[in-house]
Design a protein around this nucleic acid. Sequence first.
DNA 1: AATACTATTAACCGTATGGTGAATACAAGG
DNA 2: CCTTGTATTCACCATACGGTTAATAGTATT
Lengths: 228, 228
Amino acid sequence: MEKTRDLGRTRERILGAALREFAAHGLGGARCGEIARRAGVNKRMLFYCFGSKEALYREILSRKFTERANFFEAAPDDLAAAILHWYEAGSSDLEWVRLLEWEALGAAGDKLVGEDARRDYFSRTSARLRRAQARGRIPRDLDLSQLQITMIALTVFPLAFPQMTRLATGLAPTDPRFRRKRQRFLRWPGERLSAAPATGTPSASLSKGEGTVGNRAPRRAARGAVGG
Amino acid sequence: MEKTRDLGRTRERILGAALREFAAHGLGGARCGEIARRAGVNKRMLFYCFGSKEALYREILSRKFTERANFFEAAPDDLAAAILHWYEAGSSDLEWVRLLEWEALGAAGDKLVGEDARRDYFSRTSARLRRAQARGRIPRDLDLSQLQITMIALTVFPLAFPQMTRLATGLAPTDPRFRRKRQRFLRWPGERLSAAPATGTPSASLSKGEGTVGNRAPRRAARGAVGG
DNA sequence: AATACTATTAACCGTATGGTGAATACAAGG
DNA sequence: CCTTGTATTCACCATACGGTTAATAGTATT
């Protein structure tokens, strides 16, 4: 039979509820009482287990962050296919995108959660892209760091701005029909990029895509803080 | 000499301070006391002038919304040039982007501020794009509503996720150097799109770009509310 | 200069919230 | 079965915040 007392389990329940609450309302907007209620746990346990709301938030970010990292590691070589993989990786988890977005709004310039890992990701991806460009698989006149954020933008944006997506397309970004259409659309510039006119290699490939995009720390106590 | 009592002026001062505060912290995170302090005005005046925090927020959104709309109205015909104009329109005002982002996170599905105007914008733009496509100036196999949110994504994303932008490019999205690089980058797919291989017209043009992208109403009292 | 009106201020209130002190109940070890 | 440690609960605090009541001081009008 179930143990009536199991700290590990309550921890997990809290983390689950907190993820939902923080994704929905951000650090400042999330309510400890609500997290406890959702977790079916006494509010006090949050502080017993994690010390403070902010520490709990950091824990959530850190977990989600590493979880997502693995996903990104598995990108295929072909650029067009890689874009689709990134789309999958970047848009299959609404809560993650929302956490990213809260962070983007809340960060004041203080160190991000997992900043090193992120920097790592970007520099690895960058090196890979540079190699591909040197081999002529990406047009020489294309700015690679611009290409990077562009790819993230292409995949993350619809989830990050769902109302706008719905207004433009009539579909929710989570709707399977939307996702199919988006994938079809993304294939277009992908192939175009692959057909690299600069050097003329008809089919392109990137090295394998790894890495992640991430998280960050808290802001000024229980609010939001400026972002720049 | 200056009037010591001027309701119009205090209203403006409040609006100015509120814009900054709401852009920085969102509806839930913004503090009435702080707005008053920044405006150099007694807190009571916020409620005297606007009734409630939320009403003030709506006023801010509505103003910013129509202000931006005018900007978007003036897009040139040529697609490549239009993209640059949209970039300018979409990325020249950080506060606006942040308001959009707060909205995106906060909206629970309730009606957006200026939703009708936005729908208008999207349908007008959509019609224009369809005409251009019919004339063969945009590849026939390109999904136009996907194209629309893509263009917004390309221009808005760097400001919406500044930390990511900085990690990828080493520059802040507001940095003039970044903006130049981004413009140069955006010209690339712009010209590529213009060279419409589907029907073969070498130089493309869109009709004029109008419209706007926008705002929304409040959420559950002084918090954040779910977004989907 | 008295009147009437309204912009402005000071003080205050009720509530919600993050966080805590201390009691309590369960489980394992002896 | 009793003790010991810890997971869980209950009651509570201090504070911050949106909003309001009521008094006050400019200003225009006559």
